[in-house]
Nucleic acid binder design. Structure first.
Lengths: 139, 139
DNA sequence: ACCTTCCGTTAGTGCCACTAACGTTTCGGC
DNA sequence: GCCGAAACGTTAGTGGCACTAACGGAAGGT
């Protein structure tokens, strides 16, 4: 946190897209920080979760389900495969595809990441210590 | 749009940070697309708006007000200065600082960008054509 | 047989958030 | 007055993510 935030001009403060962006980077950082404790990023979690839920799939299918571009998927799967969280086998029925399978180690890893992400969501949604009924000055 | 989105696993669909992130990238894209028609990015708009509202300021002060890192501010101001939207003069009273001043051209540019951003916000907040009272299937 | 489409992969771009280090200048304490 | 801490502008570089372009190989439709 190099930059102590100053007061934003009202012209900027009220812009929805800026508010959303601010919320998103705060949320992303909380999640990313949590996942970093396991050396993971949000994509790893997304891919593992998708695999756990719908079983083995091709890389393209995983990309569609998680929103990850297929070009980026390659690196993610390389990392997951290096960590033995996932196996990448050529599909015998369609030789264009790879079949991605979740390993037991991957499933365990997913459970750890899932806990971290859940924690992050809780931290996200409950940042106000006392939700006091007599409501705040800027109401 | 290379990737036709597929159905996301429910485990992912319900995660707040993912929803926020999705909203943010949609919002960012709308704004960025609009601003691109004038060759600008959101930072240019933010800096010009901050200058218009509070008058001349140092680069560091602008950074605090807009949320832009002072290292990135340099390039933004270079671009704005190249386009004659802004002047960058050494501060006579504190020689560490530069005084950034909005030029008439900059003010005109700001008005154009402001219109684009306003349009974007409207598009953002009104994506549902009929807000029909008999409410949607997934209620 | 063609042509189109899909697949995995490589390479690269652009925006943004963020860090590190630098030389200069100013300020606070002593 | 001096010295160290802090602020400033600048340069350089990192890393994550969204996205594009192009490829060779394989499958599918007609």
């Amino acid at each position: 946190m190099d930059q102590p935030p100053g007061p934003a001009p009202t012209r900027l403060r009220a812009i929805p897209s800026r508010l959303i962006a601010g919320a998103a980077i705060a949320a992303d950082r909380i999640v990313a920080d949590r996942l970093a404790t396991e050396g993971a990023r949000k994509w790893h979690f997304a891919v593992l979760a998708a695999l756990a839920e719908t079983g083995a799939a091709s890389q393209a299918e995983l990309g569609r389900r998680t929103g990850i571009y297929r070009s980026d998927m390659v690196a993610v799967l390389n990392e997951l495969a290096d960590a033995d969280c996932v196996r990448r086998d050529p599909d015998p029925v369609d030789r264009r595809r790879n079949v991605i399978t979740l390993t037991p180690a991957g499933r365990r890893h997913l459970e750890r990441l899932d806990a971290l992400v859940s924690d992050a969501q809780r931290e996200l949604l409950a940042p106000s210590p006392p939700p006091s009924r007599a409501n705040s000055s800027t109401c």
